[in-house]
Nucleic acid binder design. Structure first.
Lengths: 242, 242
DNA sequence: GGCGCTATGTGCGGCAGCGTACAGACCGTG
DNA sequence: CACGGTCTGTACGCTGCCGCACATAGCGCC
């Protein structure tokens, strides 16, 4: 798989006009993102930003007492490290690789150089940040009002949307961390889904058997986030690059 | 009270360098913001943005079944309508006046004209959006892990920080809508605070008697949001304008 | 001063999720 | 093949919040 093929798989980079992309391309460094790697710690300096290709990154908030909650999920639809160009200088959350895979890494000052051209890159990144904001807002709502069952469905679908296959590698323990609930709660919820024939679970490996089934069980939060994301970034035809 | 005095009371406008502010000033239209007014509906077009002076605006998400949750609170520290320059074109949430008062209103295209100068205004607004993101993320965490008691404290302090006095006009019913809980839950939580001598409640009128007391009861979420906000916008000395 | 409205207080059954504990099940390794 | 570690399933009491139903209390208004 060539460099170019890879980058086409990050939808943000893919949306970038040719000229801008060519400027950036020499600085895009493809790297492996192993499961569990912590990309940012809260308060840490932002040296790089990441454009996921086949990996998924979670923005997590970890509380003083150790419990945690996922704020947003980022896959090949986005970028990790928006705080850089938003001007904070540091990251407010922890960012963890939730599903291993590849990503493009870009040095912070290279991104800022392009951002400060005030061209397509700026508008693209801001629009993406807007969709990220929607996701975070919806997470807040979902945490308030919906059951673990529904949230598990939402989480599965959000992850599935960012993966090429219908299989995830993820223990219930980890999912519980993301959702900010007990591991047993996930066991129970996953049990129901499995009994309904929607998924198959075995030791850290989930196969989604009936995606439409999940979509009927999920709360509106998933659809809201997806709709807004599709509105801001109209999904391209299957293979836009020749 | 003159025009200039008012605008000095919005910290964002206040932070703007003289030249930028002078360009904007003729277009800043001071208006009254009555309690309960809906400024934006989700999906609606963004004709104006608002810089609160003495009012507070809540970003709310209202679910299909009618229950709601507050996503963020905006007072004279910020601006309502960030989605405009983020590129969405429309607002994803409802925005409601939570505490009546005054605000500056600015036509969308006037803001965009200044934004597109790619100068101080752009960086200021992006930095503000970053602090808004932090608030939303923390709301998600708080909704997941903290009790109504703690959330009420957080909510009171966030509101208090955006008001000149230590009094709020707000029924328990409305607070419940904001927090996304039952009205009775707020009654109970407020009862505890009242019994502890921290606040005094009477028919839609709250007087905060012991602010430090609230701060000891509140969850970390409040402090995190405040710290990040102070970091991004170092609080000025009491009266920066001569 | 009585009426009606709105705001607040209270009580009760029910349930979802928590904390805890422990039992099986699966898997790699020696 | 036995062992240890990890992952998953199950059970039980507890708590916080919900939904509901009502009882009071302040406040304006005729």
């Amino acid at each position: 798989m060539t460099d170019l093929d890879n980058s086409a798989l990050n939808q943000l980079l893919n949306t970038l006009p040719g000229e801008e992309y060519q400027r950036l391309r020499p600085h895009l460094e493809p790297i492996e993102m192993p499961l569990g790697e912590v990309i940012y710690e809260p308060g840490g300096e932002l040296r790089y930003v990441y454009f996921p290709i086949t990996c998924i990154v979670s923005l997590l908030y970890v509380m003083e007492n150790g419990s945690s909650a996922e704020i947003a999920v980022i896959g090949n639809d986005g970028m990790v490290g928006v705080a850089l160009f938003m001007g904070g200088g540091s990251m407010p959350n922890r960012a963890v690789v939730q599903s291993s895979g590849r990503a493009y890494r870009l040095r912070a000052h290279q991104l800022m150089r392009e951002f400060n051209q005030f061209g397509a890159m700026l508008h693209l990144l801001l629009r993406y940040t807007q969709s990220l904001i929607t996701q975070m807002a919806q997470t807040a709502v979902c945490n308030r009002h919906h059951t673990v069952d529904q949230q598990l469905c939402r989480w599965l679908l959000l992850s599935l949307d960012r993966l090429p296959s219908n299989e995830l590698n993820m223990t219930q323990e980890l999912i519980a961390n993301m959702l900010g609930v007990r591991r047993e709660g996930v066991t129970e919820a996953a049990g129901k889904l499995q009994q309904a024939g929607l998924i198959q679970y075995s030791r850290g490996h989930i196969t989604v058997l009936d995606r439409p089934g999940l979509e009927t069980r999920v709360c509106e939060c998933y659809h809201v986030v997806k709709a807004e994301s599709d509105r801001l970034f109209p999904p391209p035809p299957p293979m836009p690059l020749g």
